[in-house]
């Protein structure tokens, strides 16, 4: 339990998927101009990460890892080289399924998240989390917590950035720095802020 808590806190703060590993920057820069859409996208990312990371864990452990096909009578097969293509396909498929389910169950949630779901399939944070999960040898519950934590960290970062950018609109910046340039610099300062947590260990 302590271990799971540690993974969660680490992936939210110190190892923040956006501020420490730079994943999901494209949509971060593009969407953080507006607080409302940023919040929507943030929730969608948490949701999708919490589903795709465990699903990819199953795919990795029962299909791709060396010796994973032992249950099918093929203990010598190593399909690891197919990891990228399988993960991206499973992410795209999961996003599509989630979209259909949400549309069916809750119209309100669909109008809030619907537009963002297709965008998410190509968000590097999603694929990145799955790849990190394999690289760090997480077990099933760890990977579930890691997915949730990464999503929460991304959500925090984009919501904070969107709020900052609303204030920045009134700032008088030198030519060339407004918009994208200042966003990157402020993100750097924010990343510094998040690093303060690195002293905390559970």
């Amino acid at each position: 339990m302590e271990n799971l808590m540690g993974i969660f806190l680490n992936s939210v703060f110190v190892g923040n998927i956006l501020l420490a590993y730079f994943l999901g920057m494209c949509s971060f820069v593009a969407v953080s101009g507006n607080l409302k859409t940023a919040t929507g996208l943030g929730f969608a990312v948490i949701f999708v990460l919490a589903i795709t990371t465990p699903v990819n864990w199953f795919i990795h452990h029962y299909l791709l890892a060396p010796g994973a096909l032992a249950w099918a009578g093929l203990p010598d097969v190593d399909l690891n080289f197919l990891r990228f293509i399988t993960f991206i396909a499973s992410i795209a498929a999961m996003v599509q399924i989630v979209e259909m389910v949400i549309e069916r169950i809750s119209q309100a949630l669909y109008t809030a998240l619907g537009v963002f779901l297709p965008l998410i399939a190509v968000n590097c944070a999603i694929l990145g989390t799955s790849l990190f999960m394999v690289e760090r040898n997480y077990n099933f519950s760890e990977s579930l917590v890691f997915g949730l934590g990464s999503g929460t960290g991304w959500f925090l970062a984009i919501v904070a950035m969107a709020s900052l950018r609303q204030k920045l609109r009134y700032a008088d910046l030198p030519y060339g720095l407004e918009g994208y340039g200042i966003t990157m610099i402020v993100t750097g300062l924010m990343a510094m802020g998040f690093m303060i947590f690195s002293g905390i260990a559970l």
Partner: peptide
């Protein structure tokens, strides 16, 4: 550290 990269790109 990570923040430096953001600032350099900016």
């Amino acid at each position: 550290l990570a923040p430096a990269a953001f600032i350099i790109i900016g």
